[in-house]
Amino acid sequence: MKALIFRETGEPKSVLNLAEIPTPPLAPGEALVRVLLSPINPSDQHMVRGRYGYQPELPASPGAEGVGIVEAVGPGVQGPSVGTRVVFVDTWNTWREQIVCPVDRLVPVPDGLDDPAAATSYTNPLTAWALTRSTHNLKEGDWLLQTAAASSVGKLVLQLAQQYRFKTINVIRRRDQETIIRNLGGNEVICTADEDLKAHLQALTAGKGVERAIDCVAGELGAEVARNLAPAGTMLVYGALSSHRQTDPAKFTMPLFAPRLIYSTATVRGWWLPRWVRSQPLAEVRAATSELLTMLSSGALTPPAIVQYSCKDFQEAVRLADGEAGQQKVLLNFSKDRSRVP
């Protein structure tokens, strides 16, 4: 089978190669899945560069998300049956034509959901769901502040807020992003390009600060949000967009004001999807993924705009995903039957 492989860490354009590798044998409790589509996420590029929280033993394939079709099952497997379309949970090495993995890492895809939407149903949707519904445990009427509110995860948080009726304070960096936030039901918008974040937050919260926040920017903006947490408030830091493609360690710094943190007893806590997944019962992760697939199928959640490249054209796909794709999600197409994926 064909697989995108890296044998050393470095720039993806230099170390990734399309190679022919053998298909692994099936063991009891496993399934062989033919991969149709797998997205290129920033975490994949970080892994290839050697900067991600999980680094596989090399050689390895990037990728931790995708959609495929079960081609064979090992002894003792009751389901999913051969021919079932599935997405992966807690599975690595998805940038290849075939994957062998435990069947309990597979979740069936609803018939009404197309392949591109299914392929992008795990990493960002589950991140948004787990941050809001699991770790922060938001209920109807609760407030949440989020930075980078117009990002892929930010827009999913807004859509989940409509489903579960929590309210949002949305921090953006450009005024033209406000329309996106308002159209998705955002309650409050703060644009750091022309508004004072601290003054606006103090006015919105009557000087009490925010009780729950999620941040994927870090840097000075993340630090400013942390300084405006309510007593015993919690901010979950799940990304560092301010340091994207940075190699200077100083750019990863988020300066916190110790007295404010001490006297407020607020919490600033790192959050990472793979660690959250491993901390939860697998059945609950599968159930959350299935719920998100259902919401995507029903239209309650909107999948991102996508652009596809054949796995043979991975160099162009990786280049586009590394900064020029905008709001589009770049998908690698591993399907021999190109006609089945639009």
Score class of each variant (00 low, 15 high):
residue 153 V to H: 03
residue 129 W to C: 01
residue 129 W to I: 06
residue 150 A to F: 05
residue 138 L to K: 04
residue 133 R to S: 08
residue 155 K to P: 03
residue 128 A to W: 09
residue 140 E to A: 14
residue 130 A to Q: 12
residue 145 L to R: 01
residue 150 A to E: 13
residue 143 W to V: 02
residue 142 D to F: 08
residue 135 T to F: 06
residue 136 H to Q: 15
residue 133 R to T: 10
residue 129 W to V: 03
residue 148 A to Q: 01
residue 147 T to Q: 01
residue 133 R to F: 02
residue 146 Q to F: 10
residue 150 A to K: 12
residue 143 W to Y: 15
residue 145 L to S: 03
residue 135 T to G: 00
residue 137 N to W: 00
residue 144 L to R: 01
residue 147 T to F: 03
residue 157 V to L: 07
residue 131 L to E: 01
residue 145 L to P: 07
residue 144 L to S: 09
residue 151 S to R: 06
residue 133 R to P: 02
residue 132 T to F: 01
residue 149 A to Q: 03
residue 132 T to H: 00
residue 128 A to V: 12
residue 149 A to Y: 05
residue 149 A to H: 04
residue 137 N to H: 14
residue 135 T to P: 00
residue 143 W to A: 05
residue 138 L to M: 12
residue 158 L to N: 09
residue 158 L to F: 09
residue 145 L to W: 05
residue 147 T to M: 01
residue 154 G to P: 08
residue 139 K to A: 13
residue 148 A to H: 07
residue 157 V to F: 09
residue 137 N to S: 14
residue 154 G to I: 13
residue 152 S to C: 08
residue 130 A to Y: 06
residue 148 A to N: 03
residue 131 L to D: 07
residue 131 L to N: 04
residue 158 L to C: 05
residue 148 A to Y: 10
residue 138 L to W: 06
residue 158 L to W: 07
residue 158 L to G: 07
residue 134 S to W: 14
residue 128 A to C: 11
residue 132 T to V: 10
residue 147 T to K: 00
residue 130 A to R: 04
residue 152 S to F: 03
residue 130 A to G: 11
residue 157 V to Y: 08
residue 151 S to G: 15
residue 137 N to K: 14
residue 139 K to W: 02
residue 155 K to T: 15
residue 150 A to Q: 13
residue 148 A to T: 04
residue 148 A to M: 02
residue 149 A to D: 07
residue 158 L to R: 00
residue 130 A to L: 13
residue 129 W to K: 00
residue 154 G to Y: 12
residue 158 L to Y: 03
residue 143 W to E: 07
residue 145 L to C: 05
residue 144 L to D: 07
residue 148 A to F: 10
residue 153 V to Q: 04
residue 136 H to S: 12
residue 129 W to Q: 01
residue 156 L to I: 15
residue 133 R to G: 10
residue 155 K to C: 13
residue 154 G to D: 12
residue 146 Q to I: 05
residue 139 K to S: 14
residue 138 L to I: 13
residue 158 L to M: 14
residue 141 G to V: 13
residue 133 R to I: 11
residue 138 L to C: 08
residue 155 K to N: 14
residue 157 V to I: 15
residue 128 A to E: 02
residue 139 K to Q: 15
residue 142 D to A: 09
residue 142 D to C: 10
residue 136 H to C: 12
residue 144 L to F: 07
residue 143 W to D: 08
residue 152 S to T: 13
residue 135 T to H: 11
residue 155 K to M: 15
residue 150 A to N: 15
residue 148 A to L: 05
residue 136 H to E: 11
residue 140 E to P: 01
residue 128 A to F: 11
residue 134 S to K: 14
residue 149 A to T: 06
residue 128 A to T: 12
residue 149 A to E: 04
